[in-house]
Design a binder for these strands. Structure first.
Length: 203
DNA sequence: AACACTGGGGTCTTCCAGTC
DNA sequence: GACTGGAAGACCCCAGTGTT
């Protein structure tokens, strides 16, 4: 791909990764930026410039990557809980959520796995840097990370807890909620609905 | 095809040992 | 005694495999 030199390589990287590409080489010269990228089996971001809420998952599951929308696993509690809490008004439709509810969706790490444990701290740290730049660029009103483990790994601080965070991303306030995956049995549907409701009150 | 069983997993809570 | 860090247990679901 060939980009105008006004595009910063970092911005090109962020956009392509968010769109589901793996960036392999970037060559910059005086008037252009040449990028080699490969489309990978992942989930693309659903983000825009007028978001009241940006939801950040840990990383897509293979199920979600194939379905084309996040939290697609049959046992995932995200969509039922988000719908009940009125975070979104239509189930399993991230584009509708962005256009109508002004809720964007992305992931800390774009590499799909069946379990977050397959990712290293470095994956989360690189992903957090990308999300931080995205927040500076798109200025969502509030950022919500879904999964305390990834958040801890990204910041290298195992003492961090759920709820409002002191750390900001692109100067936007950050909340951390439990991961809605069925694997996280510690959190039930009612708890997620309540936490989403509390989050909505802060938006 | 439908059901049962089993191992593995994310997160929180509790407990315990070590340190100040 | 207070604090910190690590280990273990509990919760409930997923995915794979075996059985009927």
């Amino acid at each position: 791909m060939l980009f105008n030199a006004r595009w910063k390589p970092e911005r090109i990287f962020d956009v392509l990764v968010g769109a589901g590409f793996s960036v392999e080489t970037t060559i910059q010269d005086a008037d252009s930026v040449r990028v080699t990228a490969k489309l990978i089996r992942t989930l693309s971001d659903t983000v825009g410039s007028n978001m009241r809420l940006l939801l950040v998952g840990l990383n897509p599951s293979f199920h979600a990557a194939d379905a084309g929308y996040g939290f697609a696993g049959p046992g995932n509690r995200f969509w039922p809980a988000a719908l009940e809490a009125q975070i979104v008004t239509k189930e399993r439709d991230p584009v509708y959520a962005l256009q109508t509810d002004r809720v964007g969706m992305t992931d800390l790490v774009k590499k799909p796995t069946s379990k977050a444990a397959e990712l290293t701290d470095m994956h989360f740290q690189v992903g957090l840097a990308r999300i931080s730049r995205m927040c500076r660029w798109l200025s969502p009103k509030v950022v919500c990370v879904l999964g305390i483990t990834g958040w801890r790994a990204a910041l290298g601080d195992s003492r961090l807890s759920l709820g409002a965070q002191t750390v900001r991303l692109g100067a936007r306030p950050v909340y951390v909620l439990p991961n809605p995956s069925g694997l996280n049995a510690h959190t039930n549907h009612g708890d997620l609905v309540k936490r989403f409701g509390d989050l909505l009150d802060s938006v």
